[in-house]
Design a protein around this nucleic acid. Structure first.
Lengths: 339, 339
DNA sequence: ATGAAAGCGCTAACAG
DNA sequence: CTGTTAGCGCTTTCAT
């Protein structure tokens, strides 16, 4: 029983073994209804006997259809992106496509290099989280007519499909939650205004506050959305608010830590809501209430929209699909007080 | 300037445009030395003019060489695996191969499904983190002569290449560090003995202790390696050790939290070292000293060993490559006291 | 130095 | 219902 790699069986070998022609074998495999059940059975036996594995690459050469999808991400080790990858991988697997991982590593020339690679492979399409909003960087793909759907980035629906999470809604539910739990003096600890997500989350926060008499909101902007800056901000706070919405969980973790240092009790004195539902959210001293984003769904939907475009070219309508975030309540906001 | 997807130029079109034969174009692209510089220039112009992009898939059909590598992982959202993915993606990109992401999702039948997919695609090889140690699950690939290298799993060097991190060394340096910082009464907070990594790390810990007079080590085993169990263990501890080695950062984070609850000061009363250098390590109350694993290197090396096997079939020698972990010193162990 | 032609494994008309 | 045949885009002898 040596393992000398044998040249794999081809469709011809199967045909010979089954005593039929290659097209019959092809039909058995692809349009079984066209072939007599008896012969089909013979063919299947031959397939099994020879351990025949079809070669979709060769088929694609003939049909013009490839079966690989590109997934272009800035950084696969970032939880947000790896969750997109998981969703995309699941969807691709379910539909029988293979996913080519393109890790652009925040390097524009590498992103372009991957686009070229996808063009070479005649990928059926690509799900991409582009490095910047500049749409011309996508032209490499566009010019070749390779369908793409953008993830976590806006795109006008005429230009193609996109998937994203509704950050305005996210900000709104976070602050609504604080208000429901009795907070009235809300502080938003945000990242830079220029970041779309940050601006949106703050806008949502304001919407929530407007709907409530006697509630007020203020904003403080951190230079970076890190634990360190969250800590810093907590240390410098003059008057304590009774509710804080941090627009990401790192800021929130740092802030909680800083408040704890000052002897401030969470949630009794200050309630805190984070954003993102990262692992870290459940690890901080007081487990963090936070906004959960259905990121896997983004990845899955992106692939499915792509395949719809590919398989139904004509009827396909571009769509900018927006997913709703949800609230995860943990210890950092206190049990409903009816306030 | 409409974007009506034009049928991409083929090598024939280039040949026609340049007034040469297809084989000359092919030569210009693949063995430029064989062709006259003047004609080569004409061909290159035609390539540019037509925006010709070669089709490696078609070439592979002829040559028998594909250019895709499979990467099979239990869970791409797990930091450890996504870091492997990053290293592997970088290496694959550098060498001009495409990486097919296979997310086995801890489901054996799905893992097998991916193996079949890789066989179909005639992948040149695969880097795999198998779901279990059972080697027969790899036979699908083996029988087809698809080279593979195992990551984070042992394999006898006759059977193929593998890459892993030296967990014994990891345990040793962690505890050596505690000893150097004056700790003498060491507690190892471990995961289940059956997990190879856990057993190895403990073995390393014992090695370190043996080398030091008057030092002693004890072990407590957590049911799961989570923050919650770390916390639990800290709460139940009867007599405090002066040094704790947790065999992963989650346990360590929970433990630190639990000690803080009891008013124990870290590192003054108890010094703590974690394992893994996860993000969380720098987020816990007292930033955690921990053992860093060069995981990206694992991924990169795996791909490179694979390509060596592919490209140098004959001279290739299987190898079980073991990487050395390193120590990251943060606040949870105190500055060297010369103890 | 260049070209003609065969064929990689498969599908899809088109006949029969 | 089944077989014949012509390519898909490319590389590669083998001639010239």
């Amino acid at each position: 029983m040596d393992d000398i790699p044998v040249r794999p069986a081809r469709i011809q070998d199967v045909a010979a073994a089954a005593g039929v022609s290659v097209s019959t074998v092809s039909n058995v495999l692809n349009r079984p209804e066209r072939v007599n059940e008896r012969t089909a059975a013979r063919v299947r036996d031959a397939v099994a006997a020879l351990d025949y594995v079809p070669h979709p690459g060769a088929a694609g050469l003939r049909t013009g259809h490839s079966s690989s999808i590109g997934l272009v991400l800035p950084d696969i080790t970032n939880t947000f992106y790896s969750r997109i990858a998981r969703g995309a991988a699941d969807a691709a697997y379910d539909h029988g496509y293979s996913l080519v991982l393109c890790h652009s590593a925040d390097a524009p020339e590498r992103e372009q290099g991957y686009f070229t690679m996808l063009v070479e492979q005649r990928a059926v399409g690509a799900v991409v989280v582009p490095l910047s909003a500049d749409p011309t960087r996508l032209s490499r793909l566009r010019e070749r007519g390779i369908p793409l759907v953008l993830a976590d980035r806006a795109m006008s629906a005429e230009d193609g499909c996109s998937v994203s999470v509704d950050d305005i809604a996210g900000g709104r539910i976070a602050v609504q939650h604080l208000l429901e739990r009795g907070a009235r003096d809300i502080l938003v600890v945000n990242g830079e205004r220029a970041i779309r997500q940050c601006a949106d989350r703050y806008q949502g926060a304001r919407q929530a506050v407007r709907s409530r008499r006697e509630a007020r909101v203020e904003q403080v902007v951190a230079k970076e959305m890190t634990v360190a800056y969250g800590l810093e901000i907590a240390r410098r706070l003059d008057d304590l608010p009774d509710g804080v919405f941090c627009t990401n969980d790192f800021l929130a973790a740092g802030l909680c830590h800083g408040l704890a240092e000052r002897g401030v009790r969470i949630p009794d004195e200050v309630q805190v809501v984070g954003y993102g539902d990262l692992d870290i959210a459940s690890f901080v001293g007081t487990p963090l209430s936070t906004v959960h984003q259905p990121v896997e769904d983004l990845g899955r939907a992106a692939v499915e929209m792509l395949l719809d475009e590919v398989e139904a070219r004509a009827e396909h309508a571009h769509e900018a699909r927006v997913f709703a975030p949800g609230l995860v309540v943990r210890d950092s906001t206190r049990p409903a007080s009816g306030g």
